[in-house]
Computed example of a mutant assay.
Amino acid sequence: MKPVGHRGDAAQDGMHRLFFALWPDDTLRAGIDEVARELMQRHDPGGRLLSAARYHMTLQFLGDFNPLPPSLIGDACAAADTLQLPPFDMTLDCAGSFHGSHVWWLGTQHRPPELLRLWDEMGIALARAKVPVKPHGQAFAPHLTILRNVRRFIAPEPVAPLPWRVDAFVLVDSRPGRDYEVVRRWPLLA
């Protein structure tokens, strides 16, 4: 399984970017889009607003692959099948950006312990199944990207709260020039 270094590689037709994510429902997507547009209007950061269909919160990033290894999706799904965690509530209530990045995001000021547990147990299950993951850095920084290619940094600021009942997670296959494909969905069960 060989990850690809850059999305700008010449042979992009076979490129697959795989990740596990939390996937908002349509009502939440509309609320996120409204907050993102309000932030753009108020701060004029330049860049581009993401399509609401692309909103997600990455849990575990598997990497970029070209070609896609035959067993990778099956192994990742088998690892996810072992997770048995309850649903939980989270609120997107702040916006910000990471230093050195050109994205703005929405996040939560109070990370639910269930979110950290889901991230941690998923990482353990993927490691047991020998599915490679790309590290987030030193710690999990849950966020939902709303703008790309912005010209300036934004310090964290509160936004109108958007409640999110997290009752499932998904495996996503992102391919250049195409919509995200949800490969499979796993419900969180009480």
Rank of each mutant, 00 (worst) to 15 (best):
M1W: 02
H6I: 09
R7W: 09
A10R: 15
A10D: 14
G14C: 12
M15T: 09
H16I: 05
L18F: 02
T27W: 11
R29L: 07
G31F: 03
D33W: 02
E34S: 12
V35S: 02
R37C: 10
E38Y: 08
E38R: 13
E38N: 11
E38W: 12
L39M: 09
M40W: 11
Q41W: 14
P45C: 04
G47Y: 01
R48I: 10
L49R: 05
L50N: 02
A53E: 13
R54G: 09
M57E: 09
F61G: 05
G63H: 00
G63S: 06
F65K: 04
F65S: 12
P70E: 09
P70W: 06
L72D: 03
C77F: 01
A80N: 04
A80Y: 00
A80T: 04
P86T: 09
F88W: 09
L92S: 03
G96S: 11
G96R: 03
F98Q: 14
G100A: 10
W104S: 05
L106W: 04
L106H: 08
T108E: 06
Q109E: 15
Q109W: 12
H110K: 15
R111E: 13
P113N: 12
E114L: 15
L118Y: 02
W119P: 01
D120Y: 15
D120K: 13
E121Y: 02
R128H: 11
R128T: 14
V131G: 01
P132G: 11
V133Q: 03
V133W: 00
P142M: 08
I146Q: 01
V150F: 06
R151M: 15
R152K: 15
P156H: 10
P158I: 05
V159L: 10
W164D: 03
V166H: 01
F169D: 02
V170H: 04
V172S: 04
S174H: 09
R175M: 10
P176H: 07
E181N: 10
V183H: 02
V183P: 00
R184E: 05
R185G: 10
W186R: 05
P187I: 09
P187V: 09
P187E: 05
P187Y: 02
L188Q: 08
